[in-house]
Each structure stands twice: as structure tokens, then as C-alpha cells.
């Protein structure tokens, strides 16, 4: 009886004096290793399991395209770290995209999106391919009208956002799903976490070249092997793509593209903004040559004079950045 009274006292005190505020819905916690920074999430788009589910559904739904033939997943294959296997993906009506399809991982850390940085947030970026005439050629309002006739979508949308399907629902859901695509479990990651045996001796030698003689870290730095800057790497002497200049209009940004991550390279070829290099050996050879000397070529691209053994070691190290668990998701 005594116990019951005290419980009753505590319960009445707590329940009747609770402040009026909305409790946050259950939030999903991204499982990232200690050597990754904490991912900052937009205030209006916390991650929840139901939203991830809705985002994945949308990502794989061909009804986002005009003739229901193309979904986001059509150019972003999970087994290829969500990239494509060809230089230019095939969009609507057999049209080719203008740039190589990027892999999709660790996107929540990017400060901007597209190879030219044209989209400032993931929420804005995910709508663009839907509107793009080559990729999906739909209007997001038409997409919402269609999805609102589908009970599965309307139920999930109500559950997550308490509304019918709207552009806000679509953009927040796909962006949320993409943020959960975290690749952080390569052998290099295990090495960084203290497992000395995770890398072989030739891979460690390659790491030394990567950070030293080849100075790849000038641009491919940090936990995701990119500093997200815009660079011209001298892959061509003249370009049919304005790159960053398309956004800024500045001649000094001509043919500059966002530095790509070097994770999962075994799965993400062909390489470069236009998929013009098919193998990693070609990529290493390009950087070893010092580039084509484009007007805006980065000062960090210069002849490296790597020996064959050094190239082999560098390649070995790059392959240690593969995350087999990620591509098998």
C-alpha cells in the first residue's frame, strides 16, 4: 500500500505538471564511425525510419518520369555504389545525360550538389532530375498528383508528414534516404580505427605515396577523400562543359568540377566528370602525366614521375577504399 501511494504521488505530479510541447518523433541515428564527423541535418528534415522507407520507394519509382521508364535507381545502381556503369546514363527516350552519373554515398556531408555545385541543398537537388528534360521530364506537381492516387504513398505520407504527397514530402523523403547511404566500412576505415593489419604493406606504401610524392591529398583529403572544392584536373585541353562556370559565369571557373570522393572506386567507373577514363590505371597515368595544361588546371596537377612500383602501390591503396558491405546493401 505504501509503495502504491508513492507511485501514485509521483505519477500525479509528473503527469499533471507536464509542459505543453510536441515531443519529437522517433529519430533514426546514423551509424557512422568515430573518424567520421557528425552529419548535420536540416532542421526541417530529421531522419525517421518511416521517412527512409518512403524515400527509398520514391527513389525506385519510375512514375517520377514522363513515360514511367526511368527512376532515380535507373542511373544509380546499388551494386555500383549508386553510380552507373557507362560514361553517360540513358535517360528518357534514349537520351544521354550530359555528365557521368555520380555515386551516392556520404552525401549528407556535401556542402553543395551536382558536379558544378549548382544545388545548395540535397532537398533542392533531388527535384532537379525530375524536371530535367533528358532525365525524367516530369513536373513535381504532376508527380504528386499521380502518387496521391496510390494508397501506399498517401498512407506513408500521412504517417510521416501528416499531409498528402507534396513537393516537400518528396524532396524531404528522397533526401533523407540518400543521407542514410553512408559508406564507412572499407579496410582503410578499419586501419584508421587502429587495426594495423587491415592494410597490406603495399597498400600502406600506396598511402604514403598518396599523401607524399603524388600529393593526392591536396584535393582528395579528409574522411571522404575530397575537399569538395572545384578544380580543373587537366583531363582535356578544351571542354564542351562549362563546369562551375555554368553557375558563376566566371571565366576562372571554366571547366572546373567538384572534387570526387575516392571511396568505392572499383564499383564507380568510368571516371571523371564525363566518364572519359575507363580504368583506374588510366586515371593514375593521367595524373602521373601532369594533365593537358588547361588554362584553369589546378597547380596541384603536375608530372609526378611515379615508378611502376609506385603506381602499383598507389592503385593498391585506392582499392583498399572499397566498402564491400556498402555495395551489397
Amino acid at each position: 500500500m505504501k509503495k502504491l501511494v508513492y507511485i501514485l504521488l509521483i505519477w500525479t505530479g509528473v503527469s499533471s505538471c507536464r509542459k505543453d510541447f510536441d515531443l519529437p518523433s522517433y529519430q533514426y541515428r546514423l551509424d557512422t564511425p568515430a573518424h567520421f564527423p557528425e552529419m548535420e541535418l536540416p532542421e526541417d528534415n530529421p531522419i525517421t525510419p518511416a521517412k527512409i522507407k518512403l524515400g527509398k520507394l520514391l527513389f525506385e519509382d519510375v512514375r517520377l518520369s514522363k513515360n514511367e521508364s526511368v527512376s532515380c535507381a535507373s542511373c544509380h545502381f546499388s551494386q555500383n555504389a549508386f553510380s552507373d556503369t557507362v560514361a553517360f546514363s540513358v535517360g528518357l527516350y534514349g537520351q544521354n545525360t550530359l555528365r557521368n552519373s555520380p555515386p551516392l554515398f556520404n552525401l549528407g556531408y556535401h556542402p553543395y550538389y551536382f558536379k558544378d555545385g549548382g544545388a545548395p541543398t540535397l532537398e533542392i537537388q533531388v527535384i532537379a532530375p525530375i524536371h530535367n528534360e533528358i532525365e525524367m521530364d516530369m513536373n513535381i506537381l504532376e508527380v504528386c498528383d499521380i502518387l496521391n492516387t496510390d494508397g501506399d504513398y498517401t498512407r506513408l505520407s500521412q504517417e510521416v508528414f501528416n499531409t498528402e504527397v507534396t513537393p516537400f514530402v518528396v524532396s524531404r523523403s528522397i533526401a533523407t534516404y540518400l543521407r542514410t547511404l553512408v559508406s564507412a566500412n572499407s579496410r582503410y576505415d578499419r586501419f584508421i580505427e587502429g587495426d594495423e593489419s587491415a592494410l597490406t604493406s603495399i597498400e600502406k606504401e600506396g598511402l604514403s605515396i598518396f599523401e607524399g610524392k603524388a600529393n593526392c591529398v591536396a584535393c582528395h583529403s579528409g574522411f571522404d577523400f575530397t575537399n569538395y572544392s572545384f578544380q580543373n584536373n587537366g583531363i582535356h585541353l578544351s571542354y564542351g562543359d562549362l563546369g562551375r562556370r555554368l553557375i558563376t559565369g566566371l571565366p576562372e571557373d571554366d571547366a572546373k568540377f567538384k572534387v570526387a570522393s575516392l571511396r568505392n572506386l572499383s564499383f564507380t567507373g568510368p571516371y571523371m566528370f564525363d566518364g572519359s577514363l575507363v580504368s583506374l590505371e588510366e586515371v593514375i597515368e593521367h595524373y602521373n602525366s601532369g594533365g593537358m595544361n588547361h588554362t584553369n588546371q589546378s597547380d596541384d596537377v603536375y608530372p609526378l614521375n611515379l615508378t611502376e612500383n609506385e603506381k602499383q602501390a598507389l592503385l593498391a591503396f585506392l582499392l583498399s577504399l572499397n566498402d564491400d558491405n556498402f555495395v551489397s546493401k
Binding site: 551536382f114 549548382g118 544545388a119 545548395p120 541543398t121 533542392i124 527535384i127 532537379a128 532530375p129 525530375i130 524536371h131 530535367n132 528534360e133 513536373n139 513535381i140 506537381l141 504532376e142 507534396t166 513537393p167 555554368l246 553557375i247
Partner: peptide
């Protein structure tokens, strides 16, 4: 909100290659 002139429109008045 859907009634705002700054919301997504059909036809679109927001770039699909840029913000």
C-alpha cells in the same frame, strides 16, 4: 505553401540545373 508564387509551379519556373 502551394498558394505561394515561390512554390513549385507547372510549368516549372525553377531551374533544374541550378538553384
Amino acid at each position: 505553401g502551394a498558394d505561394s508564387p515561390l512554390a513549385y509551379q507547372s510549368p516549372s519556373v525553377h531551374w533544374n540545373w541550378n538553384s
